[in-house]
């Protein structure tokens, strides 16, 4: 449980930078995540946004619900465009052509735009050390184009390109571990977050903005449409992802791992899987496989926390 979940949310900015009126589906936690990121960053932000659900729902020509400068970029180059904006503004400020001001550069994309097609641009930007934040909104498939699998789709999930049938039980590969890939670049800050834990999310985004250099935040964003889940369960599903250990909330600051939301006794993964249509076909054997893998990965993460703390 998030210990500060009761009153602290009243202290989050009331201003909207990703305002109501967008066209996301009911119960879309990805839209909620974008809204919270906007509140955490405030008005002095420039966003470069890859194509995907969050672009499509927020800018049907001639409308927009963005209240900060926002650049729609291609599917693969959010990180490259944010790098360019950061380097360009820095140069203009140095030459005195723009007043000196702290501006946050935000690159954002879905899991497809991050762990598949955008990974090259992202790796380059992290390695060059731009002062920017990259946020991946992970709804675990290419949702905007009709629920195709990505490398971030979890094992066993049925999508239109990894359909569950008699022979193949949905996605046959394990989810790519993007936060670890980002952390392997030795950048100052990496974190996982989920809008079911709004204060934890806001605090991480604020920290990422304060830290100089690249920061990567991976946000699990429940998608009721693609996950075949009643919209009123999306917040609960995010909580169950964390409480089962499937999506632990942690941060890596200068190489030090830390859990930000501690879970006492992990719930069985079936608590999470059974409420989603995309996992409906899973039998005990498959669920057992997932349980085993989750436990192993969780233990590995715990070891990293132990190893890197207090040195």
């Amino acid at each position: 449980m998030e210990p500060t979940n009761v009153y602290a949310y009243k202290l989050v900015s009331r201003k909207e930078y990703f305002s109501p009126g967008h066209r996301a589906c009911q119960g879309c936690a990805e839209a909620l995540a974008v809204r919270l990121v906007g509140k955490a960053l405030g008005r002095d932000t420039i966003a470069a946004s890859a194509t995907g659900c969050m672009e499509v729902v927020s800018t049907p020509l001639p409308f927009t619900n963005w209240n900060v400068p926002w650049i729609h970029v291609a599917f693969e180059n959010a990180a490259a465009v944010a790098s360019g904006a950061e380097a360009g503004m820095k140069a203009l400020m140095r030459k005195g052509r723009l007043p000196k001001k702290k501006i946050t550069f935000l690159a954002m994309a879905g899991d497809g735009g991050t762990s598949d097609i955008g990974i090259q641009a992202l790796s380059g930007a992290l390695e060059r050390g731009h002062d920017f934040i990259y946020v991946c909104y992970d709804n675990e498939a290419y949702m905007n184009t009709g629920i195709q699998r990505s490398s971030s789709t979890p094992f066993g999930a049925s999508t239109t390109t990894s359909p569950a049938g008699k022979v193949v039980p949905g996605q046959v590969t394990w989810k790519k571990n993007m936060p670890e890939i980002a952390a392997a670049h030795d950048i100052p800050y990496v974190a996982t977050a989920c809008p079911s834990y709004p204060i934890d999310l806001v605090q991480k985004v604020k920290k990422a903005a304060r830290i100089k250099g690249p920061a990567y935040i991976h946000i699990l964003s429940v998608c009721p449409t693609g996950w075949r889940l009643p919209p009123e369960l999306s917040i609960k599903a995010g909580r169950l992802a964390v409480e089962t250990g499937i999506f632990p909330l942690y941060e890596v600051e200068d190489g030090r791992y830390k859990f930000t939301v501690e879970v006492g006794i992990l719930r069985p993964v079936s608590d999470y899987l059974k409420i989603q249509g995309r996992f409906r076909h899973l039998d005990e054997g498959m669920t057992g496989k997932i349980q085993k893998r989750v436990k192993e990965e969780y233990e590995r993460l715990k070891k990293k926390v132990k190893m890197t703390q207090g040195d």
């Binding site: 210990p3 500060t4 009761v6 009153y7 602290a8 009243k10 202290l11 204060i199 605090q203 501690e262």
Partner: peptide
């Protein structure tokens, strides 16, 4: 409730659980 923990600008109120 931790509201003071969240708002403290210098992070000097800690919560342990």
């Amino acid at each position: 409730c931790g509201a003071c923990v969240y708002i403290c600008p210098t992070d000097c109120i800690k919560l342990k659980e």
